[in-house]
């Protein structure tokens, strides 16, 4: 009961913070909507990265630290190969590369460590992170590269008659959102409706039992790491097209940590909704809370975007440790 109360207070506070700028007249409706949309778009990108974490955690109980590195690696592959071939061919080839990477990781890292503690596997993925980071630069170089999706970068104005000045949105953001939505629908179908999806969920719960009913652990791991690789590819291309392909992409992936804490480590919808909450939350905080803090406490302001997600995740950990949609485990004592 007490937990529920805390949860309601947390949500009420979030909601109050969300509508405060509108109610207090700190912002016009048009600008407010623009910030909101900007937040949602950023959130989609977080969601994409978080999705990779969730996939692997769901199916193997491994927290894959290397997801960010995989995003960078995929983006680098596409960017560099697209210099020599059409974009679609580069992406197709990048899919092959990510599947091959999954094979290698399964064979060299996961298989020897089967049935080890989660901590051991976490350390192993930490090693994979640095390897993939470095290897990507060895193969593809370490400059800043571009991915050109062929979508105009200039923002377009919509709803001009509804709000004064209209709302500016980017076409590539809309494309990214559509891609993310499609990916999520496919993954949800896969997990809930196919026997392989069921097998993945079974493996996540108990390796030994899954093997004993004839689920081939090794193949499942290759499948799920391939899926995570493909999700990383989509995230990498979207990020890369927006910000340029550079090392910082793998760091931005750390933003996906608060997202999975918020959404729940085992939930695909959780990754999406968590990403959106974090994306909107930090944009709102940066744009509207920052100036307030400057005025009230005479601070320098700024930088809120960097820590807001983590503070929010911490609050959620206190009130709802399994996240919004995570599986609640009932342990017998």
């Amino acid at each position: 009961m007490k937990r529920n109360r805390n949860l309601i207070i947390l949500f009420a506070a979030l909601l109050a913070g969300l509508i405060a700028p509108l109610v207090t007249g700190a912002s016009g409706a048009g600008f407010y909507t623009e910030v909101l949309l900007g937040g949602l778009m950023a959130g989609v990108l977080y969601s994409l990265v978080a999705l990779g974490f969730v996939l692997i955690f769901k199916a193997s109980g491994v927290f894959n630290f290397a997801q960010g590195a995989m995003v960078l690696f995929a983006a680098l592959s596409v960017a560099r190969m697209a210099e020599k071939m059409p974009l679609w061919a580069a992406m197709l080839l990048a899919v092959v590369i990510m599947v091959a990477l999954a094979f290698v990781i399964e064979r060299l890292v996961l298989r020897p460590l089967v049935n080890q503690d989660p901590v051991v596997l976490l350390m192993a993925t930490l090693g994979v992170t640095y390897f993939v980071d470095g290897f990507g630069q060895t193969v593809w170089g370490s400059d800043i590269y571009e991915i050109d999706l062929g979508i105009a970068k200039e923002p377009v104005m919509i709803l001009g008659q509804l709000f004064e000045g209209g709302i500016l949105i980017n076409k590539d953001d809309v494309a990214a959102t559509a891609a993310a939505a499609l990916l999520v629908i496919l993954l949800a179908l896969f997990f809930q409706k196919t026997k392989t999806g069921r097998a993945l969920r079974a493996v996540a719960d108990d390796h030994l039992a899954a093997q004993s009913i004839g689920i081939p652990l090794n193949r499942i791991w290759v499948i799920v790491w391939s899926l995570a690789g493909i999700v990383a590819l989509v995230a990498g291309v979207v990020w890369g097209a927006k910000l340029g392909v550079q090392f910082s992409i793998s760091q931005v992936a750390l933003k996906a940590l608060p997202v999975v804490i918020l959404g729940g480590f085992t939930s695909i919808p959780g990754a999406i909704i968590g990403g959106l909450i974090i994306g909107v939350g930090e944009k709102m905080a940066e744009v509207f809370l920052g100036p307030v803090m400057v005025k009230a406490f005479d601070l320098a302001g700024g930088g809120i975007e960097n820590w807001f997600a983590y503070v929010l995740a911490l609050l959620f950990l206190l009130v709802l440790p399994e996240g919004l949609f995570g599986e609640k485990h009932i342990d017998r004592v």
Partner: peptide
């Protein structure tokens, strides 16, 4: 050693996994 997060039905269905033949896409769609 059951799959604790899954329903009774899904747990038992996993026992049929080896006998299911249709492909991934056929199932997904």
């Amino acid at each position: 050693a059951l799959f604790k997060g899954m329903s009774v039905l899904d747990n038992i269905m996993t026992g049929r996994n080896l006998r299911m033949k249709s492909g991934l896409l056929a199932q997904a769609f």
